[in-house]
Design a protein around this nucleic acid. Sequence first.
RNA 1: GCCGGCGUAGCUCAGCUGGUAGAGCAGCUGAUUCGUAAUCAGCAGGUCCGCGGUUCGAGUCCGCGCGCCGGCUCCA
Length: 638
Amino acid sequence: MPTITLPDGTLKRYDSPPTGYDVAQGISEGLAREAVALELDGRLRDLHTRIENDARVRLITTRDPEALEIMRHTAAHVMAQAILRLFPGARLTIGPVIEDGFYYDIDMAPISEEDFSRIEDEMEKIVQARLPVERREVAKDEALTLYRDEPYKREMLQDLADGTISLYRQGDFTDLCRGPHVPHTGFVKAFKLTKVSGAYWRADQTRAQLQRVYGTAFFSRKELKAYLAFLEEAKKRNHRKLGEALDLFSFHEEAPGMAFFHPKGMVIWNALLDYWREEHRAAGYVEIKTPILLKRELWERSGHWANYRENMYTTTVDETEYAIKPMNCPGGMLLYASRPHSYRELPLRAAEVGLVHRHELSGVLSGLFRVRAFHQDDAHIFMTPDQIREEILGVLRLDERIYHTFGLDFLLELSTRPEKSIGSDAQWEQATDGLRAALEDYGREFRINEGDGAFYGPKIDLHIRDALGRTWQCGTVQLDMSLPERFDLTYVDRDNSRRRPIMIHRVIYGSIERFLGILIEHFAGKFPLWLAPVQAVVLPINDDLAPYAREVCGQLGEAGLRATVDDRSESLNRKVREAQLQYIPLILTVGQREREAGSLSVRTLDGVVRHGVTHAAFFERVQSHVRQRRLNLDLFND
RNA sequence: GCCGGCGUAGCUCAGCUGGUAGAGCAGCUGAUUCGUAAUCAGCAGGUCCGCGGUUCGAGUCCGCGCGCCGGCUCCA
């Protein structure tokens, strides 16, 4: 006679053990219709699980976040079922749910996106059939017999603990699976296959190459449409397309993975760095610069030769081996060690916008997001152990200031000691506690990423969230317990003893190239005034007014604005259109009326036109907007 | 690096089963002088990614490279 406790505290008594579905129906028909699973004493289970004993029960409906994952897992099964029907020789491996959908790794002949529509058609049939999804539990031996011809499933079974194994069946398809699943395939209402690629069995390059087919699924067509619209929007914002359309940068075969910055791209670049320098000066940093080509022995000493050689570009000059720096730190160490330091100088905050090269695999290159040459907005902070907390806090506050200037929110993550690491337990504990204490002082939520630290120390990562809600890891603060040792860095303490400084590496933009790429997508190419390559364009309404337009443009230049004149013999409509398409934040039209009144007609990127704006009002507004680095594009909108 | 897709004018793309390259936009020239998202006309523009091969003949078929895109792995 089980008694069931519902989330609101209601107790329900049953004469015989009910299933989750029975419970739902006992509450309402609607609930029974929307229920996809249940949570039994905190564990997710199939809806048709029989509840034998007293338990806390929560019904999971299509509105609960867990439901989507459960349904997507079923969707992966539906896809696998469809693929098996169409490609009889295929062998299934694993098919998990991922952030935006699911995938299934299948050992089969390569397929392409052209095969998607027939797989989707087959899936549709399975969904329409509303096949019940049934769980069956068997002994491990039995499962092994069942899967005698499925090498991958056998391998997975071997790794599972002895005991019962669960199988899920829907119609002619059975798969080894932990579950839970939705009650029937009809719940997979709106789905779409998104991409296909190669992936290795167990992510091991020496093992079989599988086909990884990706898909996504939602409970309603509307949600699927919204997701596809999001993908469409992301595609429109693609920084590679916008970078070309706005003439910001380009890539060339002669230097794969290395960006060429055009004049307009450099304007943004410089604006980013001007701002960065302003903030760093205010935060007590000094700036340094170290060479990019350094001898092999330096890299041996720093440990890069042993640990990072694969990614380094090397060369031999006069029979001496050199490497192009993949990181700035060893150079920074030399600079620190070039003279004695007193405790009075610490913390010493040395920033460096360093150009580094890393030989990334050709297949991973991707616009500005993944390149082989990039600039890090690096800094190394040398300090005494009791300064750790305050210094880390200072870095976090600087991160926050800078990200907020771009309208970017961020998430924090603390990564602790990995398996392969150097240093003593005591050192790690001290370092990790230092970071944690700083995070706690800082007061924002943070996630712990166990075992994901660098081999030389723990770190805090900052993930920014862009306008589309996507996150990107940009900032990082890493405590380094190795380099000060290897380079024998010291400072003289108040008691005249030589001490080892603590050092952190940190970046805020991360890679300037990548950060710029993120900003292009974040702003969809519509840069705020302070970053816009061309801030204003002056359009004379006819050729007679061109000289006056040039005069106005000159005044804008004197006021510190980046302005141009479009005095081509084209229609005004055309010039307005082109200026809008270039996302120029201020489109200024001058005609007879403006010349006589000494005013401007101002069009902002929201398409709003304001006539009769006086020069004084214009300059006042625009200059303060730039000075404050404000983000709104409708900058005359009070 | 691996798997799949792609590579035709500055850009976006067309080019059927092999018969010797085409459009729109951009550019140039001229006309038009215009009040807030494309004025009109003419002209010019191509080692069809590269190198080999098959063929009487290759943008099209085959092989090998290179680059780009989507993933795998790693990371900023």
